[in-house]
Simulated scan of single mutants.
Amino acid sequence: MTKGKLFNRVLRSAASMLTRQGFHVSEERYSAAYLKRYGFDINTFIDVGVYQGSPVFYELFKDKKFVLVDPQPDTMEKAADSVKGLNFDYIQSGAGSAKGVATLSLEGPSSSLMKRRDWKRQPEKTVEIQISPLDELLENKGYKGPFGLKVDTEGFDLDVLKGAEKTLRETQFVFTEASLRRRFEGSYRFSELVAYMAEQGFEVADVIPHRSHNRLVDVLFVRSDSSYLEPNAVPVRMVGSSGKTNNQS
Rank of each mutant, 00 (worst) to 15 (best):
T167M: 05
Y188V: 04
T167H: 00
D81W: 06
D218E: 15
A80E: 11
T153R: 00
W119C: 07
V194W: 02
A164Q: 01
N246M: 03
R12F: 05
I208P: 00
L193S: 04
Q21V: 02
D118C: 01
I208C: 04
A32Q: 06
L113G: 10
Y38Q: 10
P146L: 13
D81N: 03
V160N: 02
G94S: 08
S187L: 11
N140L: 11
S31P: 07
E199C: 03
I129F: 07
N43K: 14
G148E: 05
K244L: 07
F7D: 07
D159Q: 15
E154G: 06
L68R: 02
G96D: 03
K84N: 03
S224H: 08
G100S: 01
P231S: 00
R20H: 14
K3V: 10
A15V: 02
V127R: 08
D225F: 05
K120Q: 07
D74G: 00
I131D: 02
E170H: 15
R116W: 08
D41C: 05
Q172I: 03
R121W: 10
L168E: 14
S31L: 12
A15R: 12
N87F: 00
N43W: 07
T153H: 01
D70Y: 12
S241L: 04
A15E: 04
D157S: 11
G100E: 02
V127L: 12
Y38V: 07
K62A: 15
E27V: 09
N246S: 10
T245F: 13
L106E: 09
V236L: 09
Y90R: 05
E154T: 06
T103H: 02
D159W: 04
I131C: 03
R116L: 14
E199D: 10
A79Q: 01
G243M: 10
P146K: 08
F23V: 09
D89N: 12
R117F: 01
A32C: 12
R182K: 15
D70M: 06
A98Y: 10
R181S: 14
F45R: 01
Q21C: 12
V234P: 00
P73E: 12
Y196E: 04
K78V: 08
Q130A: 09
R169H: 11
L11T: 11
S242G: 13
M1G: 13
Y34W: 10
R182V: 00
D63A: 12
A198L: 13
E136L: 00
G100P: 04
E177M: 08
